[in-house]
Amino acid sequence: MITLQDFMLVSAALFCIGLFIIVAKRNAIQILIGIELMLNAAILNLVAFGRYDRINNGGQMFALFAIVLAAATTAVALAIILNVYRRYKTIDADKINQLKD
């Protein structure tokens, strides 16, 4: 029997891995992957907690929304990365420091 705790652990692990990827990797694509991982950790949580709402299946529904939104944001993020590449000829996050000021 897979308990809620197991889902939580997997989800937390996924979140932490995603977080680590975000802060540690330099490539913008990898950071995007990290973000996806963290998003999936959250979706996993939604699905796991969805067992307590079997009538409306709120968790499942919300997870579906989140997946769709994640796909959309990924598309937008990729478009941003493309534009960044066009402008700076790199996608190394360390070299893009124009956010200040």
Binding site: I22, V23, A93, D94, I96, N97, Q98, L99, K100, D101
Partner: peptide
């Protein structure tokens, strides 16, 4: 903290 590098913002948020 406003270094302009995206990851620093993430560090600080974290």
């Amino acid at each position: 903290f406003q270094g302009g590098k995206i990851q620093y913002y993430l560090y600080s948020m974290l």
